[in-house]
Write a protein that binds this DNA or RNA. Structure first.
Length: 659
RNA sequence: GCGCCCGUAGCUCAGCUGGAUAGAGCGACUGACUACGAAUCAGUAGGCCGGAGGUUCGAAUCCUUCCGGGCGCACCA
């Protein structure tokens, strides 16, 4: 409702400005006033025009206000303060709009978007930092889909990188295992129900240490081993590559299982091994040279490399750009950014080559495919998107900017504009949390607000451990409250609440705020948390259960009544405010997508729950004696319930039946 | 040294892209349960929005500059 009426008012304002002053403003500010007494919508546009028209803002406001009405959905336009124009809505009409349920008309044609998220190196267990990535990405996918976009979800797998190489070195040279031994280990762990990603977590940390804890000569040899292993992985057809394949695939499967617990699913898993073996780079290299984005450096420190100019860099003609980004090394190998450029050409359908595809993981509703040199037929097609979103932490903003710059330089300006680095800050641990986990905190770190997690050091909170802990805590609460329900039901509810708590916790912070993780905050179920919102849903559901009514039925009955009198009545402002809040969903959705910021929706969900809880406390519905008033109260609860469930679903949070 | 991000209540964070009196949660203190289930609600205390200049009708928000913190700046990924 809010979105629609706001747009209607903007259009009318535009018309009035054109007709009265022959002015066309680029954008017309329409906002929500701080208090309901100022109306439901307001514009300070008169202030902006004061200088241009050489009139007092208040006079202009009066002229505009007089010319605005009548407008469907609005009852009045008033001038207030020094020159605000406050719009009052037709409350009965507004309530009808909200009660009717709002369709999300996507005016523009369907956009094909591609969201890449999670992308954990398949050499260790997922940790809380990865959870933030996956939850942000998955939620954004839900938002895009809610807005009617066609979205492919990709999880990029770097299975030939240095991190996987390190674990392979660990198996071969630290543990002294062969490929056959690794195979046996995988079977053994599977039989015992143990997690291979946890095993690798420890081995990765151990191997990282091993590189530096020998004599100088030993360390030197170990480093060489590391780079030889990396090289063998990239080449393939070697025992190291075989171990890498075994391990990275097993760990990847575990990551997918962890994410399923959070309701997170993928459509396609492109792997770096295929980008290498299918030689995506050759095609990209040709395009990069042909468009002049890459040039061969003959001078300076990058002599013998193919390089590109960094975004914003300026070098005088004839001078060597020492700061240029190396894409092809002097030994002929390609850097990470180079491979990424090729991959992103593919994402936009500009490469002229495709992956092979094989099914990899089955969800109840669909199959997740993985890249393969020789794929299966038939298979779905991925890539060729119109807009892409890369959920990658903010530390990688430089390489991301390089890829965008390359696309632009190659003449793909439109694609470069629709390339969003969906960046977010890391999840770190508070020093107290680190100590709780048994890590030694260095003296100089004690005073810091947070300490960065490190897979290399094995320092961090594993995702599955956190989820297990959350479920344990919610289960204890549910067991205490839901004594009448059976074991399976209580477990189900506990899981819904635990996941709700975790997802909300990761979404309540805006993207560029560092999360200093602490168990106390993450395990909290009161106040601004997922369970608070879920609890509001349960309360609303209980009203209908107790009354023997359905929300839909109530809204049908309500549609024939006139609630205007009650909504305008003294002491009922809170009811109208709740309807207004309920009517903001599409506006908030639009805002979230435009700014790539899911936190706004999380905040909206909380505010809606808060207003509902207020309403719930103030008006006792089932004992209301005035039938007309009772139907309004019931309809209010029905709308709040419907909106809460819908918004929670967009956040990937389930609404329990009881809690 | 250069680039990006962040300094808002004791703590953790919002602040709708420059608007009306700066908000919420937690924590502290006071109160409200024989249930539309208190995982809730009401109330109190708590702020020179890091400092200083500027831009304008108007600044937590934009610009400049300092202070304090974080992260990047490889022929690593």
């Amino acid at each position: 409702m809010y979105l629609e009426l706001k747009k209607r008012l903007e259009v009318r304002l535009r018309d009035v400005l054109k007709a009265s002053y022959d002015l066309s403003l680029e954008s017309i500010p329409v906002e929500t006033p701080p208090e309901l007494e100022f109306g439901e919508l307001a514009t300070p546009v008169a202030f902006e025009l004061a200088r241009k028209l050489r009139k007092a803002p208040r006079v202009i406001a009066q002229e505009i206000a007089a010319a605005l009405g009548p407008l469907d959905g609005f009852v009045s336009f008033e001038v207030a303060g020094a020159g605000y124009i406050n719009a009052r809505l037709d409350r009965n009409g507004g309530v009808r709009m909200v009660a009717g349920g709002e369709s999300l008309a996507t005016a523009a044609g369907v956009v094909h978007a591609l969201v890449e998220h999670t992308s954990i190196n398949p050499n260790k267990a997922a940790h809380i930092g990865h959870l933030r990535n996956a939850i942000l990405g998955d939620t954004f996918v839900r938002l895009l889909r809610a807005a009617g976009q066609k979205v492919d979800v990709q999880n990029y797998i770097d299975n030939t990188g240095v991190q996987v190489a390190d674990v392979v070195v660990g198996f071969l040279h630290v543990e002294g295992k062969s490929a056959a031994d690794v195979r046996a280990l995988l079977d053994d762990l599977k039989r015992k129900g143990e997690r291979i990603d946890y095993f690798c977590w420890d081995l990765y940390a151990k191997t990282s240490q091993w590189y530096t804890n020998g004599t100088d000569a030993e360390n030197e040899a170990r480093k060489k081993l590391r780079y030889r292993t990396l090289h063998e992985l990239e080449q393939g057809n070697h025992e190291t590559a075989e171990i890498a394949e075994l391990i990275s695939t097993a760990v990847l499967r575990r990551h997918l299982e962890t994410m399923v617990r959070l309701g997170i699913e993928y459509d396609f898993l492109p792997r770096e091994s295929e980008i290498l073996h299918l030689d995506f780079w050759a095609l990209a290299f040709a395009q990069l040279k042909q468009t002049g984005v890459l040039y061969f450096e003959n001078e300076g420190k990058n002599k013998g490399c193919w390089v590109m100019t960094r975004p914003g860099a300026e070098t005088a003609d004839g001078e060597t750009d020492e700061d240029a980004k190396v894409i092809v090394r002097s030994n002929g190998t390609v850097t990470y950014v180079g491979k990424d450029i090729a991959y992103h050409l593919w994402k936009f359908g500009l490469l002229g080559k495709d992956f092979g595809y094989k099914p990899f993981f089955t969800y109840p509703s669909h199959v997740c495919w993985i890249s393969s040199e020789k794929g299966e037929e038939p298979h779905p097609h991925f890539g060729g998107a119109q807009a892409i979103y890369n959920v990658i932490d903010s530390r990688q903003s430089d390489p991301q900017a390089n890829v965008i710059q390359a696309l632009r330089g190659m003449g793909h300006a439109e694609q470069a504009d629709r390339y969003t680095h969906f960046s977010y800050e890391m999840v770190a641990l508070t020093p107290r949390c680190a100590e709780e986990l048994g890590y030694e905190v260095a003296e100089e770190d004690r005073g810091r607000p947070y300490i960065e997690v490190s897979g290399r050091k094995g320092f961090g909170v594993k995702a599955d451990d956190l989820i297990d802990k959350l479920i344990g805590a919610t289960r204890a609460e549910v067991d205490a409250r839901q004594t009448g329900r059976d074991e399976a039901e209580r477990q189900r509810i506990a899981e819904q609440i635990a996941i709700g708590a975790l997802r909300y916790f990761m979404l309540k912070f805006t993207r560029n705020s560092v999360i200093a993780f602490d168990f106390k905050d993450a395990l909290s179920f009161e106040g601004e948390t997922g369970p608070y919102i879920q609890y509001a849903v349960v309360r609303a559901r209980n009203i209908f259960r107790k009354a023997g009514l359905t929300p839909d039925g109530v809204l049908r009955d309500f549609s024939g009544t006139d609630a205007g009198g009650y909504l305008a009545a003294e002491g009922c402002e809170d009811i109208w405010a709740l309807w207004l809040r309920a009517g903001r969903r599409t506006l908030v959705l639009e805002q979230c997508i435009a700014t790539a910021e899911p936190a706004y929706l999380a905040k909206h969900a909380f505010q809606l729950a808060q207003e509902f809880n207020n309403f719930y406390h103030k008006h006792h519905i089932l004992t209301e004696e005035d039938p007309a008033r009772k139907i309004l109260l019931l309809a209010t609860a029905a709308v709040a319930l419907r909106e809460l469930v819908a918004v929670l679903a967009w956040l990937g949070i389930e609404s329990p039946e009881a809690m």
